[in-house]
């Protein structure tokens, strides 16, 4: 592990994957599939943990807090998506949603390993031994799976948001953040494609599926604004070139999601935005139940290794 864990793998030579959705994957590397990255080249959470423990990579206090935010987002979403495995509408979707959950979990492990580097905590210390008000995820990620349309609506918003964010973080002055983002953005691009295709299928499929897709967006949309809220931390990080202000992602998010929604003959739901507060540890009622389940075994055996 060098001091700069940023490894931008070459993804050429995989051939063209026909995405079937003209508006999805218009920027970024649409040919990079989550399953096509050679493990030998990829930046693994273990590499980050090692770099951190050797002191070759160490986040500033601000970067650690930022990594915690992104790690919590991804972890909570992975926990939600994991529930679909063995319950999806088709076997192919058990695999696809499982894959997205695994990608998110991988990103979470990388971000949390890095965040923990500030004061010697492991990814598991952070995932299993923090309480609800110490989690920094925004409320969108903890929203219940609902039916398949709700899950797709949530995934669609998440993927387009994460794609814009990670694309920019590849230029971060923090080499580890840039490295994690470089790997993650390729995977998230594929999540965009998956969710955009389902938005089209459900919105333009049957009357029932269209009704459900519209309902799904209505349920999810109140939590969109919180994704793009700036605060003092993001202002400092943006000034330092380590990250960007979330509000700066909004125009591209609106444009690209708007293209898919237009093709799907859908409109952006006119619903009031929820107040939010996840970045300050103020969560919806859902997170407590999720953490109770996720943490129960680890907390029954504190200090044990698995």
């Amino acid at each position: 592990m060098s001091t700069s864990p940023a490894t931008t793998e070459e993804t050429g030579g995989h051939g063209d994957i026909s995405v079937g959705v003209t508006t999805a994957g218009t920027s970024g590397d649409a040919t990079a599939s989550a399953t096509r990255i050679t493990p030998g080249n990829a930046l693994r959470p273990e590499d980050i943990a090692l770099a951190v423990s050797r002191g070759t990579a160490k986040p500033t206090e601000d970067v650690a807090e930022f990594a915690l935010r992104l790690g919590d987002d991804a972890l909570i979403l992975a926990q939600r998506l994991g529930h679909w495995i063995s319950r999806a509408p088709e076997l192919e979707e058990d695999i696809a949603l499982g894959n997205i959950a695994l990608d998110q979990l991988g990103h979470a492990r990388s971000f949390l390993s890095y965040a923990g580097g500030l004061n010697g905590k492991s990814e598991d210390d952070l995932a299993y031994f923090r309480s609800e008000d110490e989690f920094r995820s925004v409320e969108l990620f903890e929203q219940p799976n609902g039916d398949f349309a709700v899950t797709i609506a949530r995934q669609f918003v998440v993927s387009y948001y994460q794609f814009e964010l990670y694309s920019r973080l590849t230029h971060s002055t923090d080499a580890t953040l840039a490295g994690i983002a470089a790997k993650a953005v390729k995977e998230v691009d594929y999540h965009r494609d998956h969710s955009a295709q389902w938005v089209l299928r459900l919105a333009l499929g049957t009357d029932e599926s269209r009704r459900k897709m519209i309902h799904g967006f209505k349920v999810i949309w109140p939590y969109v604004d919180e994704l793009f809220a700036d605060d003092e931390l993001t202002a400092r990080l943006a000034a330092a070139g380590a990250a960007v202000e979330p509000s700066s992602l909004r125009a591209d998010f609106d444009r690209l999601t708007g293209e898919v929604l237009a093709e799907a003959e859908l409109e952006v739901p006119q619903v009031p935005a929820a107040l939010g507060g996840g970045r300050r540890g103020k969560h919806s009622e859902h997170l407590g139940y999720m953490l109770a389940e996720m943490q129960v075994l680890a907390r029954q055996h504190p200090g044990a290794s698995w």
């Binding site: 959470p45 972890l75 979990l105 979470a108 492990r109 990814e123 075994l297 680890a298 698995w306």
Partner: peptide
């Protein structure tokens, strides 16, 4: 959902 470490969960 209850795997006791993130690595085991993955």
């Amino acid at each position: 959902s209850r795997a006791p470490s993130l690595k085991r969960k993955a």
